[in-house]
């Protein structure tokens, strides 16, 4: 019986600890910019979600493709229907890991390296970028920018609008995390 109690304790402790180390953001923002001589295109989603596990340093960002807001609504329609094919690939997702050895339990600013896989339009590619983490009084903020080559994710740009859409798109992500409620 004693053994069993120890075993139970052993099993439950990491669960509780894990719960506290898990940070969640449900209104993270993901924005992208495409800039050419002809046209500047930008879109933002403020309903992305992200989780950060302080212990394993795993991080996931997920955004619903239809949640990107464009200034021109027709462009938004084309983005979903012709380029992202949002009915087939509803999400874009980044699954990565902070590779630096940092202790994020203390307040401060940290610039860390993040490596992981980005899945856009059903195509996964490995990316590495620098992210800024700010820990202050229980809230953690993460910010990162990186460049995505449209062609890498098999998104076809028809020749007629080739000059309007940049080859590389700058992506900016940011999230304000709250600890996971037990």
């Amino acid at each position: 019986m004693k053994k069993l109690i120890y075993l139970l304790l052993y099993c439950t402790i990491p669960m509780v600890a894990q719960g506290q180390d898990m940070l969640i953001s449900k209104n993270a923002s993901v924005a992208f910019f495409s800039s050419t001589v002809v046209e500047d295109i930008e879109a933002t989603s403020t309903t992305a979600s992200s989780v950060l596990d302080l212990k394993s340093k795993n991080i996931i960002f997920r955004v619903n493709n239809t949640s990107f807001q464009f200034r021109k609504k027709l462009m938004q329609e084309h983005f979903n229907e012709n380029y992202m094919e949002s009915d087939k690939y509803p999400y874009s997702e980044f699954k990565g890991k902070i590779t630096d050895d940092v202790d994020l339990s203390k307040d401060g600013n940290y610039i860390v390296n993040v490596v992981g896989n980005l899945n856009v339009h059903g195509v996964t590619k490995t990316y590495q970028t620098k992210a800024t983490l700010t820990v202050s009084q229980g809230t953690t903020t993460a910010k990162a920018t990186f460049r995505v080559r449209i062609e890498d994710h098999k998104i076809k740009i028809p020749t007629i609008v080739f000059k309007n859409i940049a080859e590389f798109v700058d992506v900016r992500v940011s999230a304000v995390y709250q600890p996971k409620k037990p």
Binding site: P14, M15, Q18, M22, I24, S49, V51, D53, S56, N58, I59, I60, R62, K95, K180
Partner: peptide, 12 residues
């Protein structure tokens, strides 16, 4: 499973 990344996905 808390150690695995799948669990983070579950949160999402």
């Amino acid at each position: 499973p808390c150690f695995a990344q799948d669990d983070l996905e579950k949160e999402l």
